[in-house]
Design a protein around this nucleic acid. Structure first.
Length: 288
DNA sequence: AATGAGTCCAACCGCTCTGTA
DNA sequence: CTACAGAGCGGTTGGACTCAT
């Protein structure tokens, strides 16, 4: 038996929204809000739409302060940087770009940014490390404001810098991203929750998740769960320079590796093996 | 002018997660 | 503990638009 549909599909209008429907939804939302129930909203608002459709329309188009139009270079960098570090977690990426929606960013990435990246040749100026991520991608990773300033605040205010020696691999951490996520009202604290505990050697640990099984949501918490996978290379968002650019590669992946992932459609929740999935419930520890 | 290919993006689908009874 | 409903997410699709031939 399949899953029950969220609405009566036979009596629900599909397809593009008319201006009248937009007005209707907007007026209702401004007066009443969602009332905590999207499913019931269309009926209350007099719309022949599925609740999910209303939600999507509101979030992606009608709600205030939505930014449409061209993405700036800064936004490009932020997207590239976050994509490289957390994969296609569009909602998290969107949370770092005020006014942008996850759908917008997803579309932008799929239609433009990805291609733009792939077009970039290996010979680009300002290479910092020829054999690692010293490519246009790396330049894209160099994060500029406003993200960098916020990130830098977290970095500078962070008391810890972590090094995680995980079996035979040496994985490095800083708190920057952790702090960023955990302090971000859009993604935390749920997504960035961690506990400070001590291991058997009385070493301090940072533990993401809780008790026997860590949160397995497909958002930031997974990122952290997977980020410490011993078999995976680890994001190092480390000290940024005075311009807000990272002074080190944020990733140990080469442009070619990433391009390959993109070109083989291996970018996504299943195959972007930087940090994503696979060990969703495994508890991971960070030593400091 | 016709048309086919490519691009873009709004919207849908189906899944997972979360809260609650 | 389990089942269920709603919310949220990422992947995909379909149609409008643009451009080249």
């Amino acid at each position: 038996m399949g899953r029950a549909p969220c609405c009566d599909k036979a009596n629900v209008k599909k397809g593009p929204w008319s201006p009248e429907e937009d007005v209707q939804l907007k007026e209702y939302m401004e007066k009443h809000g969602t009332g905590g129930n999207w499913i019931a909203l269309p009926q209350k608002a007099g719309l022949k739409r599925c609740g999910k459709s209303c939600r999507l329309r509101w979030l992606n188009y009608l709600r205030p302060n939505i930014k449409h139009g061209e993405f700036t270079d800064d936004e490009d960098r932020i997207i590239c940087s976050l994509f490289a570090s957390i994969g296609s977690r569009w909602s998290i990426i969107a949370s770092q770009l005020p006014g942008r929606t996850d759908n917008d960013i997803k579309n932008y990435w799929n239609t433009k940014l990805k291609k733009k990246l792939l077009r970039m040749g290996p010979s680009i100026p300002h290479q910092k490390k020829p054999n690692s991520l010293s490519s246009n991608l790396q330049n894209y990773y160099s994060i500029a404001s406003p993200y960098s300033s916020s990130l830098q605040t977290h970095i500078s205010s962070s008391p810890y810098e972590y090094q995680c020696n995980n079996n035979n691999s040496s994985n490095y951490y800083s708190t920057s991203f952790t702090s960023l996520i955990s302090s971000n009202p859009c993604v935390g604290p749920m997504h960035g929750d961690y506990n400070q505990v001590k291991d058997s050697n009385n070493s301090n640990l940072i533990m993401f998740g809780s008790e026997a099984s860590t949160c397995s949501s497909s958002d930031g918490s997974n990122y952290f769960s997977n980020a410490v996978d011993e078999n995976q290379k680890i994001l190092m968002i480390n000290g940024s320079d005075a311009n807000g650019c990272f002074s080190e590669n944020p990733l140990d992946y080469s442009i070619e590796e990433i391009k390959q992932l993109i070109s083989t459609n291996n970018v996504g929740s299943n195959n972007l093996n930087f940090f994503v999935d696979e060990i969703k419930t495994e508890e991971k520890l960070m030593y400091y």
